[in-house]
Nucleic acid binder design. Structure first.
Lengths: 280, 280
DNA sequence: TCATATTACGTCGTCCGTAACGATT
DNA sequence: AATCGTTACGGACGACGTAATATGA
């Protein structure tokens, strides 16, 4: 199973077309056709239906592996390259809820700041495109975030903060001193996958439900809070990130908003300084 | 980075010689030489010192990635193959401390039982060589074991059991009702990596120390207990696995012996039956 | 001097591109 | 008929084996 073939396979599925994938990868279309045929011959199973081009069940299985596999490959290369690399621009990948005032203050010497979901931020560090990741997400108190395993990276907890449910004024539950998530499972929630993905919440809270309401595809927690305040659905945010709406502490299940710092082994330098500042 | 090259690299390091690796892989020796040269050219860094053949620092980094990478590759292949595979012999990989009487009773229809450490057991399932893994190891109560990430496998907790320190009769601490691990960190411990690896204990207990004493390379917990009872060092075992010696409950840190069942998506059949029996 | 890694070179296989073909809408 | 994937074929590159060479212990 050549990673090269795996990568074209992923592209073909993403594009939904052999010719489009060929264009994107800089091959001719027959080359892609042959690559897919080679992969199918190697595994002994059809991976794609043609017209329309869709993964078969076997193809879907392979896709689940292909992403992490290719990431790890890039991670290995990056990890080796880091040893001989010269210090350069300092890039930090941060989750949308990671940048409180304190955290921002600790980022001295940072050249580029990139906002990305937890998994993506870790992937950026693993593949060498970023030096530090500040991944954030919900977790049980003092439990680690469930980050993808991309090899030997150092992970340290930076912060845990209470979560609040954001409700519109006049909501029937707005007067309560605290709320239980299972009482809200049937309510409509703001579906903001880049701020606080509902599926992670479900996983951490061991809960089904959380019906998705309006979808917000941006990064800004304030927008999610405003949507909630305007009655488009509930949302759950760390207390400091919810500037408006009625904020009621979450009391059960016991979930906090956790921020973790992820980085590879760092030589002394500005990156290491930022790590020190963040973890002190 | 061709996985093929990666795999020869791993073999060369393991054998400590180009020619021995060539023999093992069925290549000629110059072929191996060229493969390593190609890998080094690709990464732009020397990976091995020659005479003696040892990994450089870059090589060591690469090695850390190569194992998981090749495992995941096998896992992907196995996962795809499982879809079209016919039901066959049912193989279970179990940790050395996983097979209590109850657990053994649940293994109806199992053809082969293989004893292996937690990481190996999971690797066997991922690569399709086993259908079920019963991984065991120390963990904080209700915390998951820290198993390697090899793709979409289902993990369920099966059991948690109290851990006891096994001491020889007449040991100064033998009369205590309970023991703290940090009080024993400077003592000599039975080093039984295939029963209860000391490094895992250190990691879970967040503790240095645990000086290794006599080394036992087998699987049998009873032997570890006997060595401890005979005064060759202390050991920590689940209460049910320590047939002799003075057994004192561990009271701090709060660590239990946890068993987890790991398996891929299973079609209905004997394997699924065993899963049901184990998790009911 | 012997063992062991590297270099040189010929051969074979693999992979891609061009061109022709086939199938599906 | 048009679009898109497959098959056919030729050329280029890469990979392995044999043979010769270099380098340490």
């Amino acid at each position: 199973m050549d990673p090269h073939l795996l990568s074209t396979f992923v592209t073909v599925v993403a594009e939904g077309s052999f010719s489009a994938a060929a264009d994107r990868l800089g091959y001719t279309q027959p080359a892609v056709s042959q690559q897919i045929a080679a992969l199918e011959a190697d595994l002994g199973v059809p991976l794609l239906t043609r017209r329309p081009v869709r993964p078969t069940r076997a193809g879907e299985r392979l896709l689940e592996h292909a992403g992490p596999l290719l990431l790890r490959l890039r991670a290995a290369r990056a990890d080796v390259a880091r040893l001989s690399a010269q210090p350069r621009a300092l890039t930090v990948a941060a989750g949308p809820l990671a940048l409180t005032a304190d955290t921002a203050a600790a980022l001295a010497g940072v050249t580029t700041l990139r906002i990305a979901g937890a998994a993506t931020a870790v992937a950026l560090v693993a593949s060498g495109e970023a030096d530090l990741a500040l991944a954030d997400g919900p977790a049980a108190p003092s439990d680690p975030l469930n980050l993808p395993d991309t090899g030997p990276l150092t992970t340290v907890g930076v912060r845990e903060e209470e979560l609040v449910v954001v409700l519109p004024e006049g909501h029937p539950l707005a007067g309560r001193p605290g709320l239980r998530l299972d009482d809200l499972a049937d309510a409509l929630w703001v579906d903001a996958p880049e701020v606080m993905p509902l599926d992670r919440l479900r996983a951490v809270a061991r809960l089904d439900g959380l019906r998705p309401g309006i979808r917000y595809e941006g990064h800004d927690p304030a927008v999610a809070a405003r949507l909630a305040a305007a009655g488009h659905g509930l949302t759950l945010l760390p207390a400091s990130a919810a500037p408006c709406g009625v904020r009621v502490p979450l009391v059960a299940p016991r979930i906090v908003h956790r921020v973790e710092l992820v980085h590879a082994a760092l030589p002394p330098g500005p990156a290491a300084e930022v790590v020190r500042a963040l973890t002190s």
